[in-house]
């Protein structure tokens, strides 16, 4: 999984949040393993869609890339540089290059700031911009996102949800980033507004050569926007690949279940419903072996003992499941990361 044109590369990234107990003598009694060994590459100019249920570590991963959290282990590189080792001017530049759009535009915009102040804020730290240039940039951005120039002097409460999300996108675009994290960008909006926003994001990507990390649980929406998909379950990527491949021929039983549980687009749409029992286990007590085995409809005896590693079942289509390939001789995660660049069909599909 190391395409040559990867903009963001995560290698075996872990983030464990320690749990402390006791009041006077505080002891570490465990850890929430939010992200537990993730290796992904986000290609330049493409959209990487990260799907999974709540609590699977999607947002923590975004925070690690944004340098809001520090990883417990592993490295994150951006354009070849280790993100968590950046200092001084390089770090400042990184903070401009990488932006984020949050889920809820009702809480991500300051109600006491005018729209122009909101969009201007990320530019104010940049000495390159004079006051006039900033003003011009605000007007330009409002045009790009499809709001009237007169909107600049108004406050967030005077806008609808969809317009607010446009403003949040304008703010993210202000410092001319190359990478934007979109954390559930449309899920708080009305159905008729979602398509507008998704089309806007697509257009912006093409116009400004942006790279997106799209986090969502809406499988159909991710299918529309993303070029590559990573399916996450309890802190691990269980399947990844190009979106036509993953949606057209899901390999992991969890992906299968997710897709079959997504709502159909027609009442008579053919479906083979895989109903999973139970809910996602707690990330404090991750099941042994394959973390999906307690809910897996295709569970085998050794699934609870040996943890499957991500392997290339088909060119560019990766899956971590014992159903595919020879798992006893499965390479360790490190080997996988190296092997990927050279070998094309490491594990044959069954």
């Amino acid at each position: 999984m190391t395409p040559s044109n990867a903009l963001v590369q995560l290698t075996d990234v872990q983030k464990h949040f320690p749990i402390h107990q006791g009041f006077i003598i505080r002891k570490e009694t465990g850890a929430v393993k939010a992200v537990d060994g993730v290796t992904i590459a986000i290609e330049r100019g493409k959209t990487f869609g990260l799907v999974g249920e709540s609590g699977c570590g999607k947002t923590t991963m975004a925070k690690l890339i944004l340098r809001i959290e520090t990883p417990t282990a592993g490295t994150i590189t951006f354009d070849g540089k280790d993100v968590h080792k950046l200092k001084g001017s390089e770090l400042r530049a990184y903070r401009e290059t990488v932006q984020v759009v949050f889920q809820d535009p009702y809480s991500s915009l300051n109600p006491r700031m005018r729209i122009k102040e909101i969009i201007e804020e990320p530019l104010r730290t940049d000495p390159k911009f004079t006051k006039e240039q900033r003003k011009a940039r605000i007007e330009e951005l409002l045009k790009v996102i499809g709001l009237r120039p007169g909107s600049a002097t108004r406050y967030p409460h005077q806008f609808s949800g969809g317009q607010r999300q446009r403003i949040a996108i304008a703010r993210a675009l202000a410092p001319s980033p190359s990478f934007i994290v979109l954390d559930e960008p449309v899920s708080s909006l009305d159905v008729s507004i979602r398509a507008q926003l998704m089309n806007l994001l697509k257009d912006l990507q093409r116009e400004f050569h942006l790279t997106f990390l799209l986090i969502s649980h809406d499988l159909a929406g991710v299918r529309y926007l993303a070029d590559t998909i990573g399916v996450m379950y309890l802190g691990k990527i269980v399947e990844s690949g190009g979106s036509p491949a993953v949606y057209g021929k899901p390999l992991h039983p969890y992906t299968h279940a997710l897709l079959s549980n997504a709502m159909p687009s027609h009442p008579n749409a053919p479906r083979t419903e895989v109903i999973l029992t139970g809910e996602v286990p707690s990330p404090i007590n991750i099941p042994t072996g394959c973390r999906f085995h307690p809910r897996c409809p295709k569970v085998m005896p050794h699934c609870s003992k040996i943890e499957p590693q991500l392997q290339e079942a088909e060119p560019g289509h990766w899956v971590a499941c014992h159903l595919y390939g020879d798992t006893n001789g499965a390479p360790t995660p490190k080997e996988t990361a190296h092997a990927t660049a050279t070998s094309t069909a490491a594990g044959n599909a069954r």
Binding site: A195, R223, Y224, P244, Y247, L259, A262, S265
Partner: peptide, 8 residues
């Protein structure tokens, strides 16, 4: 305007 799993 609804995205579909089959892709559009």
């Amino acid at each position: 305007s609804t995205p579909k799993l089959e892709g559009v």
